[in-house]
Write a protein that binds this DNA or RNA. Structure first.
Lengths: 219, 219
DNA sequence: CAATGTGAAACGCTTCACAGCG
DNA sequence: CGCTGTGAAGCGTTTCACATTG
């Protein structure tokens, strides 16, 4: 009875819960590294700007992880979230666009800790093709399907200019990826069965500046 | 009567609407560049993955911009959103952390188009301090208050490792910024009156991989 | 007694359906 | 007739309040 029971994940969790799960995981790892074995919903929520009730309800979707009077055991909860998130799988990734941002992503250390690895890079610029960055070689974009057969990447990152983003997306899909993370400042159109996430750096700043002007503090 | 009337923005718009406003703006600019003078809610929504009703309702919070039977005039709508978002102001920005990611942000062209400009960079690494990147000089982090007096930045970007992020945030606040965009993979604690936005690249991938595994297609 | 787990209430956002307009 | 603007209904999420537990 010392171990907690994880509900079947068939229990569809609300989308909003899943987005917070990653934040909980990250924060729990910091807390645990810092030496704490347990944490209460109030503490954890406080660090992330969520209410205690929300933290408890979020975890309750997946099972009973807490001990009344004590809180949650970090290790246990970390393991549970990692399982739920599938964070124990390895994810080889293809990068399209070896410009400023693409090169920074290739060098970024934070991915490997979470088992994401950029295994191949692609670009259309002949000057970039053939070079190596952090041990990853830059291939011509046209070669993506050939390389995909060998490297088996399932996710793709688009770090091209806006004009080339749709083409990059199409090539990635042709190469068989099932998810695309798009850093180009334009919406891309993909088949229904492909998952996408977008990060537009300028938009992040725009939202922030709006919040500042309108005195909306905190998140 | 040819011009539309913009409601006072005192009409507090839902947070969710504001996050979409930036996407509308970006997309309208693409559509307009592409030569179209008008766009319907169905077209615009289709490109972004929103319903037509949502698009109409979103704009209706700020006034009456559309013409029945025609749609929305791109120019008019672009101007209106820019006004609402305060996108006509200039935002000088301080960057803390001149590593991989920081340098990529300094070189990123997408900011200036939206009137964001990194005017000073800071780092604690003596090897980086004193160098110039894209015409921006890297100062010692301790000098931030002195530089702030001259450069008057109101926003700060944190692109440091997780361990240094809280300290970077504290220095930025001491230097008088009112908003912080945090790329470090850790939650930071700030005074109530400071706005924050977070972008964690690994978390974006984690969310994407979860969506792939759980067959959640599209957004 | 400090903390969880959880129904029920409250809230905010999205979708629906349709009147109204050019 | 195509498309907007908008109340009203519907839905998902958050907060509240409290019984429950080690």
């Amino acid at each position: 009875m010392a171990t907690s029971k994880t509900k079947t994940l068939s229990t569809e969790a609300p989308k909003a819960v899943v987005t917070r799960l990653s934040l909980y995981l990250r924060e729990l790892q910091h807390i645990h590294h810092q030496g704490d074995e347990t944490v209460s919903s109030t503490q954890l929520g406080g660090r992330l700007g969520f209410s205690d009730a929300q933290v408890r309800k979020d975890f309750a979707y997946f099972g009973q992880f807490g001990r009344p009077g004590i809180g949650y055991r970090c290790e246990e909860l970390i393991a549970a979230i990692r399982t739920i998130m599938g964070a124990d799988l390895n994810w080889p990734i293809a990068l399209v666009g070896a410009g400023n941002l693409g090169r920074a992503l290739l060098r970024y250390k934070g991915f490997s800790e979470r088992r994401f690895q950029i295994v191949s890079a692609f670009d259309t610029d002949p000057e970039k093709v053939g070079s190596q960055i952090e041990g990853v070689s830059v291939h011509p974009l046209d070669a993506i399907e050939t390389v995909a057969a060998k490297e088996k990447f399932r996710l793709g990152i688009i770090a091209t200019p806006a004009e080339s983003a749709q083409h990059a997306a199409d090539r990635l899909v042709a190469a068989g990826v099932s998810g695309v993370l798009n850093f180009a400042p334009v919406a891309i159109n993909l088949p229904e069965n492909i998952c996408t996430a977008e990060v537009d750096l300028a938009i992040e700043l725009e939202q922030l500046s709006f919040a500042v002007v309108n005195q909306l503090s905190e998140k």
